[in-house]
Design a protein around this nucleic acid. Structure first.
Lengths: 144, 144
DNA sequence: TAAATAGTGGACAATTTTATCCAATACAAA
DNA sequence: TTTGTATTGGATAAAATTGTCCACTATTTA
C-alpha cells in the first residue's frame, strides 16, 4: 500500500507527536528506537518531513525533532503520505496504466475508485494528534 | 497497492479470458502486445498463474495460453492477486508491523481494516469473466 | 571561543523487484 | 520420426528501494 519509507514516516510522526504533547523533543536515536527502524534511513525520512514542514528539526545540543502542539490537529495522515510517496496513492491506476481515467478506464477502474476514495477520505480525516493520543494511552503500538 | 507483477498478471488474465470467450488461444507474444508488458517477464508471471491453475498453458505448435470457458465465472480477482502477491494485501499491517492485530494494533489498525475489508470484498466478488466481457465490448482498456 | 552535541547531505552498499537471455523441453503436424 | 513451434526454467542483468557511512554544519554550553 505504502512504501516502507512512508510507513516509517507515519510511525515516526506519531511518536514525535506524542512526545511533543508531553513537551519533549526527541533525537533521531529516540525515534529509531521507538519505532524500531534503521536510524540512518529514518534520518532521511525525517529530513523530508521537516522540509515539508510536518515536523520541526533543531540542530545542536538540546536539538531534536518536534511538532508544534498548536498545529498538531491540523496534521492529517495524507500530508505525510503525500510528502513521502507523492500522489501515487490517489492518482495511480490500480493496474499500472499510465492514462487511466473515466474516459479510458482500466478494467477495474470503477471498482478501485470506490476503495481509493475510501482510503483518501480516511487519510484526510485522520489526524496525527488522535493517533498520538491513543498511542500515549497504550492503546496502540509502534513496533514489533 | 499491488506489485507490478500482479498488475501484469491481472491484465494478462483479462486478455486471455476475453480471447478464450472467443475460443482463441493466445501466445506469449500476443499477451505481451495486448497488455504492453515485457514479454520475458510476462512469461514468468503466466507460469505462476498456470501453476496456480488459473490459466492453462499448452506447449508446441497450436499451443498457447487459455482459460476454460466453463470455469471463467469462478475465477475471481483475489485468486490472481493471491497467486502472485500472496496474502500481504489481506494480512499485512498498514504500517509494516510484524505482529499487528486487534490485541496489539498499530495506530491505524482499525482505520485500515475498513479499507482492507472493502478491498477484500471487491477482489472476492469481481470475476475475470465480467472484466473480460467489458473489455471485449471496448468499454475498458489494457494498455497505455 | 573551544568543545560537545545533534541534524544534514552526499556517496556508497545491500536487497528486492523488475526485466532479459538462452538452452532445454514438450508437443503437434507432416 | 523429423521438424518447427511454443512454453519452461535457470542464470543474469538492470533498476528501484532500502539501508549505511562519514565528513560537515549549526547550535548550545562552558
Amino acid at each position: 500500500m505504502f512504501s516502507k519509507a512512508c510507513e516509517y514516516g507515519i510511525r515516526a510522526s506519531i511518536f514525535i507527536a506524542e512526545q511533543s504533547l508531553l513537551d519533549r523533543k526527541v533525537s533521531l536515536k529516540d525515534v529509531a528506537e521507538a519505532i524500531e527502524s534503521p536510524s540512518a534511513y529514518t534520518s532521511k525520512i525525517l529530513q523530508r518531513l521537516s522540509k515539508s514542514n510536518i515536523i520541526n528539526s533543531d540542530k545542536g545540543p538540546t536539538g531534536g525533532f518536534s511538532m508544534d502542539k498548536s498545529e498538531l490537529e491540523k496534521v492529517k495522515l495524507n500530508s505525510i503520505v503525500y510528502a513521502i510517496d507523492g500522489d501515487t496513492v490517489y492518482n495511480g491506476c490500480g493496474l499500472g496504466l499510465k492514462k487511466c481515467n473515466a474516459d479510458k478506464p482500466c478494467p477495474v477502474h470503477n471498482q478501485f475508485k470506490v476503495i481509493r476514495d475510501e482510503l483518501k477520505k480516511m487519510l484526510e480525516n485522520t489526524t496525527v494528534k488522535t493517533l498520538a493520543m491513543d498511542y500515549e494511552k497504550g492503546l496502540t503500538f509502534l513496533k514489533r
